[in-house]
């Protein structure tokens, strides 16, 4: 097995032309899978390509390089101030040691239904910028993630950046993750919510649930029900019922499908605490 650390995109494109080449960002997922014998072949590390790293704000959009580490994200003042939901999600991902290596792009490309950054990215309407030697294309995160462990990436193509439109400053951003412990836990269920309140009336709401379906689930039914309604326990309870009908959870070693379904709805009830 060979490992390569190209320093430029041009070198990268050459390397990616060889068959059986895995792209590695932080390595915290890929190297675990390799150890388990789930993948082999050459490894091409992205860590030395400067264009793929860094956080930049431009015209109300935050652009985050795919190999920006999660620790870098946590240390970004803009992320902390304008995307508290993403900040919280990242803070609960893995551990500080994992976050020092793991990247935002890596978390997206792993495309796990339990990927901790994904619900926030869905709720925020993030976009993925895909790059290959000849093309650049932009996909909504929901299009980018094709299924559990699958993305829209074509051979020779990488995820270069993530674009996140910054929500208006007075929008409520809420994130909650349920795990079996407080660090190093794979999410059992999670909710990322962005909402705008007019008094106690919900004007605009986006709800994204993690770990309760093959991919992150936006619950349009619950969003529609809550829009223009007051943020009361009764309304939330009704919406929670809609969430429970919409989710498609599975049983695994961490939790049962029934638990996930119930909790997905319950997580919505917590929004009552934002009622003025």
């Amino acid at each position: 097995m060979s490992a390569y650390l190209p320093g430029t995109l041009t070198d990268l494109w050459d390397l990616l032309e060889e068959a059986d080449t895995a792209v590695m960002a932080g390595g915290t997922d890929l190297l675990v899978r390799r150890r388990a014998g789930k993948c082999a072949g050459r490894i091409c590390c992205l860590e030395r390509i400067p264009e793929l790293r860094g956080v930049q704000e431009e015209e109300g959009v935050l652009e985050i390089g795919a190999t920006t580490t999660l620790t870098d994200l946590l240390e970004s003042a803009t992320v902390a101030a304008r995307l508290p939901m993403l900040h919280q999600a990242v803070r609960q991902l893995g551990s500080p040691l994992v976050r020092n290596q793991a990247t935002l792009g890596g978390n997206m490309c792993t495309a796990s239904p339990a990927g901790d950054t994904l619900p926030a990215l869905y709720a925020l309407g993030a976009q993925a910028v895909l790059l290959s030697r000849r093309t650049e294309r932009v996909l909504d995160v929901a299009e980018f993630i094709a299924g559990p462990g699958r993305t829209a990436l074509e051979p020779g193509e990488i995820l270069a950046r993530v674009r996140i439109p910054l929500p208006e400053p007075n929008a409520v951003q809420h994130f909650e993750k349920v795990g079996r412990r407080r660090a190093l836990a794979i999410s059992v269920a999670s909710l990322a919510a962005v909402l705008r309140l007019d008094g106690d009336v919900v004007r605009d709401i986006r709800l994204a649930f993690g770990s309760v379906a093959p991919t992150v689930l936006r619950c349009a039914e619950a969003e529609a029900w809550l829009t223009d309604r007051t943020l009361t326990a009764d309304n939330l309870r009704h919406a929670a019922g809609l969430v429970r009908s919409a989710v498609l959870p599975i049983d695994d070693v961490r939790a049962t499908a029934d638990y996930r379904r119930q909790v997905a709805g319950n997580l919505l009830l917590r929004l009552e605490t934002y009622r003025p």
């Binding site: 490992a3 390569y4 650390l5 190297l31 040691l97 994992v98 290596q101």
Partner: peptide, 29 residues
């Protein structure tokens, strides 16, 4: 553990703690 779960293998790389079980030797160059 070999999978980044325990942190016993942490080392400082350019001043930042890293999991040496999930780092290729090549990355140390």
């Amino acid at each position: 553990c070999g999978t980044g779960e325990c942190g016993a293998c942490a080392i400082l790389v350019d001043g930042r703690a890293r999991l040496s079980c999930l780092t290729l030797a090549a990355q140390l160059d």
